[in-house]
Amino acid sequence: MSDKKEPSVWEGFKAFLMRGNVVDLAVAVVIGAAFTNIVNAVVQGIINPLVGAIGTKDLDGYSYCLESPCSGSGSTATGIRIMWGSILGATLSFVITAAVVYFLMVLPMAKYLARQEARRKAKEGTQEVIEVSELEVLKEIRDTLVAQRASGHDRE
Rank of each mutant, 00 (worst) to 15 (best):
M1A: 14
S2I: 14
D3W: 04
K5M: 06
S8E: 15
V9N: 08
V9Y: 15
W10N: 11
W10C: 11
G12P: 09
K14M: 12
F16G: 01
L17T: 13
G20F: 08
N21T: 11
N21Y: 09
L25Q: 14
V29W: 10
V30R: 05
V30E: 12
A33Q: 01
A33R: 01
N37P: 01
V39M: 01
V39Y: 00
N40M: 02
N40S: 02
A41M: 15
A41R: 10
G45N: 09
N48G: 03
P49E: 09
L50G: 06
L50C: 11
V51W: 02
V51R: 02
V51G: 00
V51A: 04
I54W: 04
K57P: 03
Y62L: 03
Y64F: 12
E67C: 08
S71E: 15
G72W: 09
T76F: 14
A77H: 07
A77C: 11
A77D: 05
A77I: 06
T78V: 05
G79P: 02
I80R: 13
R81D: 11
M83D: 09
M83C: 12
W84R: 04
G85N: 00
S86V: 15
G89N: 03
A90G: 09
T91Y: 03
S93C: 03
F94E: 03
F94W: 11
V95D: 00
A99T: 05
V100M: 00
V100D: 01
V100R: 00
F103C: 07
M105K: 04
V106Y: 11
L107K: 09
M109V: 10
M109H: 14
K111D: 07
K111H: 06
Y112T: 10
L113Y: 06
A114M: 10
R115I: 01
E117W: 08
E117N: 14
A118Y: 03
A118R: 00
K121W: 05
A122Y: 06
K123Q: 09
E124G: 08
E124M: 14
E128F: 12
V129D: 02
E131C: 13
S133C: 07
E136M: 11
V137H: 09
V137G: 12
L138A: 15
K139F: 02
E140K: 15
I141Q: 08
I141R: 10
R142F: 02
T144D: 14
L145C: 07
V146S: 14
V146I: 14
R149L: 15
H153G: 12
D154Y: 15
E156S: 10
